[in-house]
């Protein structure tokens, strides 16, 4: 009898010990030495993720002893989502808008319903907004959205059909027109028609528009992501352009998500989740702010507060009842945007 109890006890101790060791610092032996992640993202985040990937790799190795290599793919947000649906096996997606991430669920069930509630703050670890970039000295006196509909003002924006950023542009303009005193649906429609009537070049992506404006010298005003605007003002077109902040704008929330179907196939769920969560850490938020995205962390935001203009921001849920509705009404084939161009003929 006694030996039996002893054996049982020994086994129990051994099991407990091994459990304890697994919970402690040394990593589980099951983890491979190196792991590779693929982050499929949109155009303007190249510089951000180049820096963040290196930071996360350091953090992850220090914590787990495992090396991680992160591969990046950048392109237009919609094109990137479509590639993932068609078999580009991204472990994580970091796209321009929730509509594109949600396409992974709608079109191919790669991620479950409710994906946006899996991470804090709508799964958007950073935000941005839409501002104007004008020529030095603001020769056309552009102050607010209304000026973009004025005759003789040439406006550069990408095509909302193909560019995530451009959809934010469009929605911000629409909501401004709707909310101004005496504004209604018809007036918003007229305003948007005038604004797009002033657009001489409709590039397919945000980066194309920036190039058209900065390099080709076309247009009086560029409607752009705030982070792209900063990049232009401080780096690419330094001394040639300045930023104008409109009276109201949209809170752009570019969401991130792990792609369940693919991380389970690759066995990378743990590291992929950690990769996205680390975006919310102090270091992650600091990197985000350095690349002119608005950090979610109040502490980090306070450190960079002078960099971001105070502007009345509204979210897409408040103003449009979410992406589903905005997309159907404005951007689908035959929607308001199509009607605009078709009636212009």
């Amino acid at each position: 009898m006694v030996p039996r109890i002893l054996i049982l006890g020994a086994v129990a101790v051994a099991v407990l010990a091994s459990e304890a060791s697994r919970a402690g610092e040394p990593p589980a032996p099951a983890r491979p030495e190196k792991v590779v992640l693929l982050n499929v993202s949109y155009d303007p985040t190249r510089e951000l993720y180049a820096e963040y990937d290196a930071a996360f790799a350091r953090h992850w190795e220090a914590q787990t002893g495992q090396k991680v290599e992160i591969k990046q793919s950048h392109g237009g947000s919609g094109k990137q989502a479509r590639a993932v649906i068609d078999g580009l096996e991204a472990d994580v997606v970091t796209l321009a808008l929730a509509w594109d991430v949600d396409a992974l669920r709608r079109e191919a069930e790669l991620i479950p319903e409710g994906w946006q509630q899996r991470l804090p703050q709508n799964s958007a670890p950073y935000t941005s907004t839409i501002v104007f970039v004008v020529r030095k000295g603001n020769p056309k006196q552009i102050r607010d959205w209304g000026d973009l509909g004025r005759e003789g003002v040439s406006v550069i924006t990408p095509n909302p059909k193909t560019s995530g950023g451009a959809r934010w542009n469009y929605l911000a303009a629409w909501h401004w027109a709707l909310e101004r005193p005496g504004g209604d649906e018809q007036k918003a429609r007229d305003f948007i028609a005038r604004l797009f009537g002033n657009v001489p070049v409709l590039d397919t992506g945000a980066r194309g528009s920036t190039t058209t404006f900065a390099e080709r010298n076309i247009g009086d005003v560029l409607i752009a992501w705030e982070n792209e605007a900063f990049l232009l003002e401080r780096d690419i077109a330094r001394g040639k352009v300045e930023i104008v902040v409109p009276s109201s704008s949209i809170l752009a929330e570019p969401p991130v998500a792990i792609v369940d179907r693919y991380v389970d196939k690759h066995g990378t769920r743990e590291v992929a989740e950690a990769y996205l969560r680390y975006l919310y850490s102090d270091e992650g938020q600091e990197i985000v702010a350095r690349h002119y995205y608005r950090p979610r962390s109040k502490r980090v935001m306070a450190r960079h507060a002078e960099q971001f203009a105070k502007v009345k921001l509204f979210t897409i849920d408040q103003a449009f009842g979410g992406w589903e509705q905005a997309q159907r009404k404005h951007f689908d084939t035959g929607g308001v945007f199509d009607q605009l161009y078709e009636s212009k003929r």
Partner: peptide, 12 residues
């Protein structure tokens, strides 16, 4: 043609 099938993975 290549741009449609590439996937644009850096270095790959």
């Amino acid at each position: 043609a290549v741009s449609v099938v590439s996937g644009l993975i850096r270095g790959e």
